[in-house]
C-alpha cells in the first residue's frame, strides 16, 4: 500500500514542474481570457470588471454582418472579418505556395546534389534571424522613396511602367494611384507581409522535409528504380506518402504559424490595419483602445481558431496507413 502511494507521489513530483508552468501560464490564462471576454474593464484605470454578457462577441461579429436595411456592412472599426479573412489567406498562401516550394527544393537536394549541405545551410539561415529584424529589413526593402530596394529594382528594369498602373487598376479599396507603396493598400499589404514570411520560413520547412526524405529506406527507392519508375513517380508514389507525418507537422506549423504571426506585421508596418490579423487586432484593442474585455475576446477567438485548424489538419491527414501523432 505504501509502495503504491510513494509511486504515485513520485509520478506527481516528476510532473509537478511541468504542470505548474503549464497550468499556471497556459491553461489558467485560457480560462481567465474566457472569463474576461464576458466583461469589460481597463487595466490602466483599475476599473472594476463590468459584466457585459455576450456584448463583446456581438460587437466583434457584427462587424462581419450586413445590415438588412441598408445592404451595407455594419459600420465598425473592429474589422474582425478582415482579420479572419487575412489569416485564412495567409494560411492558404503558406500551405499552397510555401510548402510546395519547400518540398521541391527538399526533393532536389536530398537526391545527392553537389553542395547540398551548403545549400541547406544557406536556405535555413533566415530562420535564425529575429523576426523584428526581418520586419524592419523588409520595411526598408519596400520603402516607396528613393532608397527602397524593391522599387529601385523595378525602376531599373523598367517594370514599374506597366506593373504600377496594372496594380492601380486592380485596387478597388482606394482611389489612390499605386506608386510603390506596397504596405499602403489593402490589396498589397498582406502580400507584402507574406513575402518576408516565405523568405524566412521556406528553409525551415525545407529542412524538416529534407530530414524526412533522408529517412526513406534505401531499398524502397532501389526497388522502385528497378521497376523502371521515373524520378517523378518515385517522388509521387514513394517519398511523399512516406513523409506524410512530417508534411502534416509542416502544415500545422505553417497554418497555426500564420494565425499566430504578430512580430513581423508589427515590425513591418506601423499601421497594421491594412494587413490586420487577429493578433494585431487584439494588440490594438488591448493597448490602444484600452478595451481589455474586447481584446480578450479576440484572444479567445484566436485560441479556438488555432485548435480548430490543428484538428482539421489532423483529420485531413488521417488515413488507413499513416499513424496519427
Amino acid at each position: 500500500m505504501k509502495r503504491t502511494f510513494t509511486y504515485k507521489l513520485n509520478i506527481f513530483l516528476f510532473l509537478l514542474p511541468a504542470l505548474i508552468l503549464f497550468i499556471g501560464i497556459l491553461i489558467a490564462p485560457i480560462i481567465m481570457s474566457a472569463y474576461y471576454s464576458f466583461h469589460e474593464f481597463n487595466l490602466v484605470a483599475n476599473t472594476d470588471m463590468e459584466y457585459v454578457g455576450l456584448n463583446n462577441y456581438r460587437i466583434l461579429f457584427s462587424s462581419m454582418l450586413t445590415n438588412p436595411n441598408t445592404g451595407k456592412l455594419y459600420a465598425n472599426s473592429m474589422y474582425l472579418g478582415d482579420a479572419l479573412a487575412h489569416s485564412l489567406i495567409l494560411a492558404a498562401l503558406s500551405t499552397f505556395i510555401q510548402l510546395p516550394l519547400a518540398l521541391i527544393i527538399a526533393l532536389k537536394l536530398s537526391k545527392g546534389i553537389r553542395g547540398e549541405r551548403a545549400y541547406l545551410s544557406i536556405f535555413f539561415m533566415p530562420v535564425l534571424i529575429s523576426t523584428v529584424i526581418i520586419g524592419r529589413l523588409w520595411m526598408n526593402i519596400y520603402d516607396p522613396g528613393q532608397a527602397g530596394l524593391l522599387n529601385a529594382g523595378l525602376r531599373a528594369l523598367g517594370i514599374d511602367k506597366w506593373l504600377f498602373p496594372a496594380i492601380t487598376s486592380r485596387i478597388t479599396s482606394s482611389k489612390l494611384p499605386f506608386t510603390g507603396q506596397w504596405t499602403g493598400f489593402r490589396e498589397t499589404a498582406l502580400l507584402a507581409a507574406f513575402i518576408p514570411i516565405l523568405w524566412q520560413y521556406v528553409g525551415y520547412h525545407m529542412l524538416l522535409m529534407y530530414a524526412g526524405i533522408k529517412g526513406v529506406p534505401a531499398d524502397l527507392l532501389e526497388a522502385a528504380q528497378l521497376d523502371g519508375c521515373t524520378e517523378g513517380q518515385v517522388n509521387r508514389f514513394i517519398i511523399i506518402p512516406y513523409i506524410k507525418p512530417i508534411l502534416k507537422v509542416c502544415v500545422i506549423f505553417a497554418v497555426t504559424g500564420s494565425l499566430k504571426s504578430f512580430d513581423l506585421i508589427y515590425a513591418l508596418m506601423k499601421d497594421t490595419s491594412r494587413a490586420e490579423l487577429p493578433s494585431t487586432l487584439m494588440y490594438k484593442l488591448l493597448f490602444l483602445h484600452q478595451r481589455y474585455g474586447l481584446g480578450s475576446t479576440v484572444a479567445v477567438i484566436l485560441i479556438v481558431l488555432c485548435f480548430l485548424f490543428a484538428m482539421l489538419i489532423s483529420l485531413a491527414f488521417r488515413d488507413k496507413g499513416a499513424k496519427v501523432a
Binding site: P29, S33, Y36
Partner: peptide
C-alpha cells in the same frame, strides 16, 4: 500537446495579471 497550438500572444492579459 495542447500547448503546441496555443498562440503565446493570446495569453498576454492574464499572464500580465498573474
Amino acid at each position: 500537446m495542447l500547448g503546441l497550438t496555443i498562440p503565446i500572444h493570446a495569453a498576454i492579459v492574464p499572464v500580465f495579471t498573474i
